[in-house]
Amino acid sequence: MILSNTEEIPGRQIVEFYGVVSGSTVRAKHFGRDFMASLKNLVGGELKGYTELLHEARTEALDRMKQQAQSVGANAVVNVRFSTSSVAQGAAELFAYGTAVRVE
């Protein structure tokens, strides 16, 4: 499964379009519970725990999108976009979407 955020996969020819595929996950951010992060919030700098959490969540959203693309018979997703929204206090939805295609 090839992903790309361009309109086509460079170097490949798109032979079929399957429409929009998407994947999402909602994660709570362990605020208040995560002592290290609240400490780090005082001294400033990177909150590594959150970086990892969001990275994992985004990877999962991408995986779900890939699964959906696979189920419709695509072998690539073009024009991939991300969106992050706070749906509730301390929780965020990570959403990935794109157009499933078959290339070459």
Partner: peptide, 15 residues
Amino acid sequence: QAALVTGSVVVSLDY
């Protein structure tokens, strides 16, 4: 070859 690459970071201000 072509494929998606990402990089992310969470930062905060000091007190």
